[in-house]
Design a binder for these strands. Structure first.
Lengths: 150, 150
DNA sequence: ATTGATTTAATCGTGCGCGATGTAAATATA
DNA sequence: TATATTTACATCGCGCACGATTAAATCAAT
C-alpha cells in the first residue's frame, strides 16, 4: 500500500472516533431503553423533560442541538406512546409546549437505574474515573467550540 | 423544578456529549465534503480505501464498525458516483471486493486539504494541542472498551 | 458425500438527522 | 396602519444506522 497522506489515516482523525464512540455508546444503552420502550434520541428528550420540566420545542432543540425537522416527528412518536403532551401555546400560537404525562413522569423512576448500570459496565476497564471525568470535561469544551463554528 | 435524580441530568452523562459532538463535527465537515460530492460516512469509507487499498466489505465494516445493512447501499451509491468498483470474489463468492476507480483514487488529492482546514478552525479556541491529543487517546481507548462490551 | 453450522452480503422496515422549503403567527419598521 | 422581517414549527426528500431476516457459499465433521 502507498504510504502517503498520513493526515488521511483513520487513526489520525478526531472525527472518526467520535462518530464510532457515539454509535457504540448508543448501542450500549439500547437494551436498557428497550425495556422503557423508547429509542436513544427519545431518551434524550425525556431527560430534558425530567430535568427541566415542560418546555417549548425550541428549548428542547437548543439543549439537544436538534431542530424541528428532527424533533417534530420524534415528539409525535413520544405522544403516541402517551409519554408526553403537545399543546400549542395560547399566548404565542407559533410555539408548541411539550409536557410530561403521568406515565412519562413515572418512567423516570425506571430510567434512574440506567446510568448506574452503564457505569458498572465500565468497571475493570482500562479507563479510571479521573481519566473519564477529564475526558468528559474536554468533551463539553469541544461541544461549545463546535457549536460556535458555524 | 424537582431537584431529584441528578444522575439523569444531561450534563452528568457521557452519552449525550458524545452524541452531540459527533453530529456537530460531521456538520463541520459537510461543506468540504460537498465539494467532493460525498457524505461523511462515504468519506470514511474512502479514507479506509485510500489508506488500505482494495478490501472486502467485511474488512471495511470491521474498520468502521458498520455492517452490510449500512454498507451495501452506501457502497452502491459510491459505485454510482464512479468512485469505487464492487466485484464479487471469484475464490469466495460470498464476499465482495471493493476497489477504487481512477476517479476514486484521484479524489484523495482533493481530500488531503480537508484535515488541515478543519484543524485551522480550532485555532484560537480554548483547546490546545496537548489537550486535544490526550482527548483523542482516551477516545480510542473508549472505543476499544465499548467494542468489547457486547 | 451428506448433513449441519458458520460466514458473507443483501434486503426490509423503522427511526433518526438534516438541508431545503413552506406556513402561519408575531414582531419590527416605515 | 400597512408592509416587511423574523420566529416557531411542520413538511419533504435523502442518506444513514441498525435489528431482524434471508440466501448463498463455504467449512466442519462425520
Amino acid at each position: 500500500m502507498k504510504e502517503e497522506a498520513p493526515e488521511l489515516y483513520l487513526e489520525n482523525q478526531l472525527c472518526f472516533p467520535l462518530y464510532a464512540a457515539s454509535r457504540l455508546t448508543t448501542k450500549i444503552y439500547a437494551p436498557y431503553l428497550e425495556e422503557l420502550g423508547i429509542t436513544y434520541p427519545q431518551y434524550l428528550v425525556m431527560l430534558t423533560l425530567w430535568q427541566h420540566g415542560h418546555q417549548h420545542v425550541k428549548e428542547i432543540g437548543e439543549r439537544l442541538y436538534l431542530e424541528s425537522n428532527t424533533l417534530t416527528p420524534l415528539l409525535k412518536r413520544l405522544e403516541q406512546k402517551k409519554l408526553i403532551r403537545r399543546v400549542r401555546s395560547k399566548t404565542d400560537e407559533r410555539s408548541v409546549m411539550i409536557s410530561l404525562t403521568r406515565a412519562g413522569d413515572a418512567l423516570k423512576d425506571e430510567a434512574k437505574e440506567i446510568p448506574g448500570r452503564i457505569v458498572e459496565s465500565f468497571n475493570d476497564s482500562s479507563i479510571n474515573e479521573q481519566e473519564l471525568s477529564r475526558f468528559q470535561r474536554t468533551l463539553f469544551k469541544l461541544l461549545v467550540i463546535l457549536n460556535k463554528e458555524d
